[in-house]
């Protein structure tokens, strides 16, 4: 026997010789297969088509409606530009390489700011979730900060840090950290108490309980906190870039938006708004959605229609 002798549950003779037991095993196996949850897997291609096609169709329909409105109502092009004007503005920004520069600058700041926010928000969230006095003291403040629009910090940040990147990062952090910390707190709060009891019964130490039970159990809540944190980081970044221009602050999407406004270039403004929106959607689709789908499906938390 390859096993440690301490495992005395299996020391008794196995059940191969007993015909009554074989019958029981077949009975039980039959019931198991009757009660098993049938999986209806869909191919990767089908899943992609189902996920990607409807939003693209909507997009095409919206642009078409917009173009039809322009053709029928013939509004002043400087007040309501058509889709082709906006597309033209986009193309010229691309050919002058302003677009690439702006997207890269903003994404780099947003990404780095988000990572710093994760590094700060996660320990705060853990402390809040597991330490009652801290929660009672800091919890309401953090919830309040989550409601406070982070743009409100821009004037203060400019006075403190001047027109530097530090201002931008500060505003991002004030937007994202509360969301991430609160996400982790609600993730921990939603852990079924039974799971902790099982951990206790199985003899987990405090550390084992935190790493083997609490953190994995809180992962879905934590992840939705991360998603919200990213959304807040991206919004705060745009706000900060629009308000703070000049100094050592580089050329981001918000800067580009503000420049187009100063030139009364509405097509350019709309084009930039679309780019900002598109980057947000892309990060969600490419980065967050696959991880979240995997996370939820592995736990059976995904509604059948979304598989």
């Amino acid at each position: 026997m390859p096993l440690d002798a301490r495992i005395d549950t299996v020391r008794a003779a196995p059940h191969t010789s007993d015909p009554g037991h074989d019958e029981f095993r077949r009975l039980e196996a039959g019931l198991d297969s009757l009660q098993a949850v049938p999986e209806t897997p869909r191919g990767a291609f089908r899943r992609t088509v189902d996920g990607v096609l409807p939003p693209i169709l909507l997009l095409v329909a919206l642009v078409a409606a917009w173009q039809v409105y322009i053709l029928i109502a013939k509004p002043r092009p400087d007040l309501i530009p058509g889709p082709f004007d906006v597309f033209g503005a986009l193309a010229s920004a691309w050919s002058s390489e302003r677009l690439q520069l702006a997207v890269l600058t903003s994404l780099e700041r947003g990404g780095l700011g988000f990572l710093i926010a994760v590094a700060i928000g996660t320990p705060i969230g853990l402390l809040l979730a597991e330490c009652r006095p801290v929660r009672r003291t800091v919890g309401p403040l953090l919830s309040g900060l989550q409601v406070l629009p982070s743009v409100a910090w821009v004037p203060a940040a400019i006075i403190w840090f001047g027109l530097t990147d530090a201002t931008v990062y500060f505003v991002i952090l004030m937007g994202a950290v509360p969301s991430i910390a609160n996400g982790l707190v609600s993730g921990v709060d939603q852990i079924p108490p039974q799971l902790r009891r099982v951990g206790t019964v199985l003899g987990a130490s405090r550390f084992e309980m935190a790493t083997l039970v609490v953190l994995p159990a809180a992962l879905p809540g934590y992840f939705s906190g991360l998603k919200q944190g990213w959304a807040f980081a991206w919004r705060s970044l745009m706000a900060a870039e629009i308000i703070t221009t000049g100094g050592t602050i580089g050329f981001g999407l918000g800067t580009m938006l503000n420049q187009s406004r100063e030139l009364a270039d509405l097509a350019g403004v709309l084009a930039t708004i679309l780019v900002i929106l598109f980057v947000g959607i892309l990060v969600e689709l490419v980065f967050f959605a696959p991880i979240e789908r995997r996370l939820l499906r592995r736990r059976g938390l995904m509604a059948a229609g979304l598989r």
Binding site: L3, A29, D32, Q35, R299, G300
Partner: peptide
């Protein structure tokens, strides 16, 4: 071996939500 004791050795790779009560 423990799973086999409860006649579930074949379900070792299944996740809880894929199992019946």
């Amino acid at each position: 071996e423990l799973l086999d004791l409860v006649n579930l050795a074949d379900a070792a790779d299944k996740r809880p939500h894929e199992l019946s009560g």
